[in-house]
Design a protein around this nucleic acid. Structure first.
Lengths: 340, 340
DNA sequence: CTGTTAGCGCGTTCAG
DNA sequence: CTGAACGCGCTAACAG
């Protein structure tokens, strides 16, 4: 437990000089700084973060507030990848990460603002929160810099940023992919309707249909809550009535449910029915057949979120929306109807 | 940013009384305590953790030091589930969690002991660390209470606990499962040889063979590093020479690699070759065919780890090894040779 | 039962 | 360039 005091004693200087040496203050003789640094190194000294937190005005703590971890399917590993990216981004910028995982099944939750206050949090990354969450509103009102993942706000605040892929463009691409391969009987399997990403993807899909001069009837759009099982059930029902040539799914998880339903209906993919997904979960490469889907780089999303937040916290950058690249990866679940 | 001082002022008492009211000290009049609590509530006060950390002797911070997150396959979500369990366990015990993710690809890493020192960490959960890691040794030497996940140490320290399923028993069960269904040409696909869990599972497999009076030749044991791709390659090579009736895999991930190799060799599962896995990853239910495997409840493992650590930190329990239940889940990848 | 005092380990004035 | 003094928010020991 070597403290700054002991280092000061060993170096024959006062604590404040040690502090300055450690924190790159300009008003210190290079030689003594060098010497102190060396002694600190030898003594295996590293500053206590609680002490530093308490005395410093600088905000070095970043909060990750996420409801995506406890409230999503075990198969849904997106949040995990995002968090890895956040962790790396925070670490690379020499900040600290405090994680707050929301579990909607738990009775009473601590307010997000309180969480931040207790931990001297200078900026927060928000993942999977509902916009009608009162705690969310409270947090925004505190004016703590925030970065939203997969959501854009209307508020024009200088300390609010956001990050996502270009869901609109991706929606167009995946729909184009189907349309250009001759599919006309397409059923769209949407996620949670009020969700930003879902809305954008749907807009994209609509635009693609419009562009191709093909109608997209409302009854061909089904919302399955980003849930595998619900998608499975919806598709099972639907297939009793009609047989589309393709399902366009706004998540891989839902695509898995669709594939199960299609197989159980005695149809084969992609010969009878095509399926396209969204996310590119690791397992989409080994489904049967492997799933054609939109790849999102979740690690990058998290990483960029952290970097953006740090910039906003340092006032080096005002609020903005950052787009991360996506990519359509073509595998074996979509048939080209033109070829036989 | 309301502080304890302001609460004290509002309540017309000194700060120490407020502190005592908040921390359930016995020497305080119930009425004033009630009053203070209410005022604190009204003022939306919650204590600053840095301040508390600095002054209190109690160690409320728990560290999670894991190399399993950055150094494993994206498909391997075990670590994720374990961490969820840890988070919940730590939260339920009103402790704080600090996470340190080791990335072996990064050049210089901070020492684990230093990480703990900087953050006043009173106990640590260790996941996926190598026993020959010098930082690991250094941390243990600090005498900070530790709980190992999936590893048992020889050291007899009062502050070291460990947790895992009964890998030996599970190894027996899965081997019995194959042997009892008439399999005799079995190839064991092991993981990382030096690993505790691998050794135990192998011991169990050997015991099962011995019990059944059947030899297990050494050349039928292949170590594939818990790696899907390596298992795939090993199996591909092996199948060119001989065709076992079953592969016994010490992880689901390796089982996936085996299944791929088997299919590519033109064989079908389970008719020609059976496969049994270990872990029960979420996707093992939807592989083709669904994988028979040993289910580990990773959430519970993490959760129990946190609870055990808290007990050890509070000296309520001396070191011990906790076993979490496992279960063989029978799906469609093992054929009973007796039946046709 | 309550208040006073003294730190915890550090960053930050402000004199020198 | 260096050091003394102060305070961050809180708990703990000790008087009263």
């Amino acid at each position: 437990m070597t403290s700054i005091k002991e280092v000061a004693k060993a170096a024959n200087v006062s604590v404040s000089v040690v502090s300055k040496a450690l924190n790159d203050y300009p008003d210190i003789k290079p030689e003594t700084k060098e010497r102190i640094l060396q002694i600190a190194e030898e003594m295996n000294y590293s500053p206590n973060l609680a002490g530093r937190n308490l005395s410093s005005k600088k905000q070095m703590n970043i909060g990750l507030i996420s409801s995506a971890v406890f409230n999503s399917s075990e198969k849904d590993t997106n949040a995990y990848q995002v968090i890895k990216g956040i962790y790396r981004g925070v670490e690379d910028n020499n900040h600290e990460l405090s994680v707050f995982l929301i579990d909607s099944k738990k009775q009473k939750q601590k307010s997000y603002a309180q969480f931040c206050r207790e931990r001297n949090i200078g900026g927060a990354i928000l993942q999977g929160l509902r916009m009608d969450d009162p705690y969310f509103k409270e947090l925004v009102d505190t004016n703590i810099p925030c970065v939203y993942i997969d959501h854009i706000t209307d508020e024009k605040s200088e300390n609010i940023g956001s990050i996502s892929i270009d869901n609109y463009a991706a929606g167009i691409e995946m729909t184009d992919h189907l349309l250009e391969r001759g599919h006309r009987e397409i059923v769209v399997i949407g996620g949670v309707e009020e969700t930003f990403v879902n809305a954008k993807r749907l807009e994209g899909a609509r635009e693609s249909f419009r562009k191709h001069g093909i109608p997209l009837p409302e009854e061909s759009i089904i919302h399955a809550n980003f849930d595998e099982d619900q998608a499975y059930r919806e598709a099972t029902e639907l297939l009793k009535k009609r047989q589309p040539t393709a399902f366009l799914c706004f998540s891989d998880l839902m695509a898995y449910g669709i594939m199960k339903a299609v197989k159980e209906a005695g149809l084969t993919i992609p010969e009878d029915v095509s399926v396209i997904g969204f996310d590119d979960l690791p397992f989409s490469a080994i489904t049967n057949p492997p799933l054609t889907t939109i790849n999102q780089n979740f690690f990058d999303i998290g990483n960029e979120a952290a970097q953006l937040l740090v910039k906003v916290m340092e006032k080096k950058q005002s609020s903005q929306h950052v787009m991360v690249n996506h990519e359509l990866v073509e595998r074996g679940s979509v048939r080209d109807i033109h070829k036989r």
